[in-house]
Each structure stands twice: as C-alpha cells, then as structure tokens.
Amino acid sequence: MIEEPFAAGNSIIHQIDPRFRVAAATFYSFAVALCYEFQPLIVALTVSLVSVLLSGVGLKTVLKRLAIVNVFILLFWIVLPLTYKGNNVYSLGPVNVYLAGIILAAKITLKSNAILMVLISFIATMTFATLGHSLSRLRIPEKLVFLLMITYRYIFVIQQEYQKIIRSIKIRGFKPKTTLHTYKTFAYVIGMLLIRASERADRVYNAMRCRGFNGKYYSLTDFQADAKSWVFVTVVSGATLGILLMEVIFNG
C-alpha cells in the first residue's frame, strides 16, 4: 500500500493552496538542480530543512525516506571518486581517488536532499487526489493527469492480483531456488500479471464508456488562493531567486 502519512496535518504549509505549493516546489527544484556552486547549494539545503520543519511532518519518517534515496546516492560516492578524472588525492596501486569526483558526489548529495525535502514538505503534504487536481488546474495536459490518477488507483488492484498469484503458488509448496523451474514460475507470474492487468484495463475502459466517458476528466475541487498562499509563493520565489543569484555570483 502506498500510504500518505504526511497528507493529514494542519501546519502552515498544509493551509497553502495546493496549486501554489506544486508551482513553488517545481520552480524551486529546477533552480536548485541548475546550481553548481557549494554556497547556493548549502543555502538551498537550509531553506529546504526549514520548510520541512514548518510543515510539521514526522522527522523520523522524513529521515527514513531520505535514507532510501541516499542509498542510491552512496553509489555515486563509490563510483565518481574513482572515475571522474582530475587531481588525484590518493593512489593505491592502479586505483586513483580523484578530488573532482568527491566534490561532484558531495554536490549531488546536497542537491538531491534539498530537492527531496522540499517535495516532501510542499507536495507530500497533500493527498494524491489533490495533487492530481492541482496539476489539472495548472494546465498540465489532461491525458498526463489522467494517466497519473489511473496509475495511482489501479496500482493497488494490480498489487492485490500479484499477491493472489503469489499466495496460490505458495500454498502449493513453491519455494524459490536457482532452478529452471523457479525461473519458469516467475516468468508465468509476470506473464499472468500482465494479462490480468491488460484485461482489467479493458474492463475499466468499458465501464467508463458505459458512464459516458469522452476523454475528459472533471475535477470537483475548487481551490481558493488566499493572502497566505500569495505570501508563501512570494517567499519561496524570493528564496529561489536568491539562490540563483548566489550561483551567478560565485560561479563568476
């Protein structure tokens, strides 16, 4: 199950119009992704940290989420110092550790964590349904929004189908081993899952046609942009421009 542990809450961030949060998070993330210098990146990390604190979400859960992503970033720390050529700081036989690689890995770490924290505090604090509606209000193409919503709705159904199949092979004594039988069984499981998903898609589409679906997605939510939302978007834009300015200054 995909849970939405951050969506329920009543912090200052939760009260901001979701459209503004999505827009602000997008603008901010792009700006941070474009930065290359340490100074703006450290400021960005601080801003992101503050936004997480403001959103009042459980810090433990946030750290858990960050940890998952940082496991992948760890791979950069292993690969980049050995391969990104520059001045080497340490040599062991044929293996060289390059300073440029270490710096790059550090920058990637700062950037990813800053972006991730802002996404958690701005976007993970709304339900998926609200996210879909704000995207459609922000004039993201309807087809994309629809794809996102349908994926979200049916990923659980497909997961249930998967568990049904897994249960049915388990009760018949299947134990995975490194044998051809095991590979064949897994191939069947995947194949069956694909077939069931595709048949499900046909049935869902038929049900939608029966209810007069003509490719249009309607959203019932009305968003209200209040003064708070405008202040919020101004502050975030200000911070973003500040970070970009620092990047320009320090990058010479």
Partner: peptide
Amino acid sequence: DQLFCPTVLEDVAFGPLN
C-alpha cells in the same frame, strides 16, 4: 472495474458530469 476515481464523490459524479 467500475470505480476509478480517487474519491467516492468524484466517482459518483463522473457520469452526470459526462
């Protein structure tokens, strides 16, 4: 197969809106 909207109200309103 029939319910595909995130919330109940949206799903029930889908037909009338169409």
